[in-house]
Simulated assay, not measured.
Amino acid sequence: MNVKRAEQLDGIAALAERYEVFLLDQFGVLHDGQTPYPGAVAALSTLKRAGKTVVLISNSGKRAGPNEDRLLKLGFAAGSWDHFVSSGEVAWRRFHEMAATGALRPGTKCLLISRDGDRSAIKGLPFALTEAGEDAELVLISASEGDRHDLDHYRRLLAPAAVRQVPCYCTNPDKVMLTAVGPRFGAGEIADLYESLGGGVTRIGKPFPAIFDAALALAGEPERASVVCVGDSVEHDIAGGNGVGIATALVSGGILADTADLAAVFDGHKVWPDYITGSFSFR
């Protein structure tokens, strides 16, 4: 689609008139990691009261439960969404199936790249944690601490595993994350680094189809024409929605808030949204 045809909206009320199923990103759409965006709490509740099916779909390396708990703590109303699908949840279920079929050996040494020491991504899985790339038999990149470390920190940690071709999974393909000190490199950038060091990476999350397939299955396999994906990342939300044949709406107030030329971003990725709105608010 030509970018000139992207419809400019002032909020999401017009989308509610046209679509029945909403696949919503969280970071950059509902909140910035610390605080809900103005109008977002009310907009989410309004969608549910209007009878819409709401599936939150996130490139979070954490499982669904911890993500939902955070939304409640931020002030979002319980019951204002139907399902939560995170890339961490999709990955956890994949690893669980691998363990059940014997494809994942019990005690596999896992080098986990996470945030704040979080281990929820592997809870209940037969991994043995290691902090050394030299010992790792599997690398799992679930989050970034790009606001605390530079890429050289991760280069030193991961290089010994990459040169040995240790399998790596990235459960948060976002290359930019919002932090209290501004945008910083995300887990997706760490995955790119791993590849540059000679390793291979399996990415789980947006824009790849598996997470969208999981979300649509939970929504009851609706007609694609009745579904809209709302996100703030051209590379992940808009590209992913385009890839599975659903409408897309870009919220320009997230990671692209300081971008003067959105058209250049769309052209650069060869991806264009159907709609553009400044915020996720119901007006």
Rank of each mutant, 00 (worst) to 15 (best):
residue 267 D to E: 14
residue 169 Y to Q: 02
residue 31 H to N: 12
residue 124 G to A: 08
residue 87 S to Y: 02
residue 236 H to W: 03
residue 43 A to F: 01
residue 260 A to Q: 06
residue 200 G to Y: 09
residue 46 T to S: 11
residue 176 V to A: 00
residue 164 R to G: 05
residue 248 T to K: 00
residue 8 Q to Y: 06
residue 50 A to K: 13
residue 90 V to Y: 10
residue 85 V to G: 02
residue 209 P to S: 12
residue 171 T to E: 05
residue 64 A to L: 05
residue 125 L to M: 06
residue 122 I to E: 08
residue 186 G to R: 02
residue 207 P to E: 00
residue 281 S to C: 11
residue 198 G to T: 07
residue 162 A to Q: 04
residue 265 V to C: 05
residue 242 N to K: 15
residue 162 A to N: 05
residue 44 L to T: 08
residue 149 H to G: 08
residue 162 A to I: 01
residue 98 M to G: 07
residue 128 A to E: 14
residue 278 G to E: 14
residue 92 W to H: 15
residue 62 K to Q: 12
residue 136 A to I: 01
residue 141 I to P: 13
residue 78 A to L: 11
residue 180 A to D: 12
residue 221 E to P: 03
residue 162 A to K: 04
residue 222 P to F: 07
residue 175 K to A: 02
residue 66 P to S: 14
residue 65 G to P: 04
residue 130 T to M: 06
residue 161 A to D: 13
residue 205 G to H: 00
residue 160 P to L: 00
residue 24 L to N: 01
residue 162 A to V: 01
residue 271 V to N: 09
residue 18 R to K: 13
residue 116 D to P: 04
residue 272 W to Q: 12
residue 251 V to A: 03
residue 119 R to V: 12
residue 128 A to R: 14
residue 186 G to I: 11
residue 249 A to R: 08
residue 94 R to N: 04
residue 85 V to E: 07
residue 25 D to H: 09
residue 178 L to F: 05
residue 79 G to D: 07
residue 147 D to G: 12
residue 31 H to R: 09
residue 219 A to S: 10
